[in-house]
Design a protein around this nucleic acid. Sequence first.
DNA 1: CGAAACATGTAAGAAGTTACATGATTAC
DNA 2: GTAATCATGTAACTTCTTACATGTTTCG
Lengths: 183, 183
Amino acid sequence: MAKKNTLKYIILGLLEKQESTGYDIKKIFEDEIGEFWRSNHSQIYPELKKLEEQRLISFRVEIVGSKLEKKYYTITDEGKAELKEWIFAPTPELLATKDEFILKLYFIDNKEAGKLVKRFEEQIVLHQEKLEHLKFRMQTVFASQKEKELNYGHYLILDHAINREEGYLLWLKDQYIHIKKDE
Amino acid sequence: MAKKNTLKYIILGLLEKQESTGYDIKKIFEDEIGEFWRSNHSQIYPELKKLEEQRLISFRVEIVGSKLEKKYYTITDEGKAELKEWIFAPTPELLATKDEFILKLYFIDNKEAGKLVKRFEEQIVLHQEKLEHLKFRMQTVFASQKEKELNYGHYLILDHAINREEGYLLWLKDQYIHIKKDE
DNA sequence: CGAAACATGTAAGAAGTTACATGATTAC
DNA sequence: GTAATCATGTAACTTCTTACATGTTTCG
């Protein structure tokens, strides 16, 4: 069976939305889809090169300032076709969520649970901050209904991320109360 | 910065709970901690070998039947020390959850949202089944309070997984109603 | 006796991370 | 001018997946 290469489809999807440089794509990973997939620039640039060789994307060079060469990539019709296929195909495998903190809980000894109070406090702060950041983005990016309609997909994943974080936080706080009692 | 090698600590953690073979460990990944970390036997066996070389674990060979050699691994004191360090150390990095389905939603065109109705139905079934499986496990494994006290860590992560799936399902069903309207 | 599960490994390659490397532009 | 950010790449290494390879034991 062939490997998935999800990064390929993500890049195609981003380029269908708008012509972008590798750096732009890197930024979108950080800002918008990082909750659900991450990729470093050291993976993005080689993939762009590969996709261009496969004629799924093409690029033009723009000179910025006096010598900086920026490569603006665009999706080709062939690329669009492959993208559509991926988007509308079933997604039958539920990937395991790698959560190191929850995993650690599996290994704690009942007697030592009290030692984790600080760790729970840290996690609560981390997830609280993340949630607040996500909510702030929701407020600023989707201030008007028009924005929501214009980029419904972005709205959807932000909404999902917020929902997820709210659930996670509630669970954390709930457990925190329990272990705090036993301290 | 050194690499994490989380698998190392998971194996140490499992072996602290009980003496196990590589096959046992593989099973525990499938049955108990697969919601939060996965690993194939092709990664487990070499790692066991490595940990043994580092004297963090040791093994004895038991002959089963007439010729099958099973390797039972045990954690050493050195291994226990490293394990404790990992468990009680902060976990400051929130790993990105790779969720291919949610990611696809980011790329859908508003006009084409109706095409995703079937895909939402599939996801709902998948997550419903997963949730039911988790709940069934909760009922069977933690039938009594005693079981819960005996293996609190296992109870905690199962509870977390159930919580997560319930939230996910609610969100899916909510969105499903919305896209169904626009079909 | 046959199938399912148990049991242990290696090989090849893809995916992902961290570090190495370099330089330009912009905003203060 | 200088710091932050923009911008593009490669190298080395770890991690993860899939496939290859082989054989035993248990249960019906």
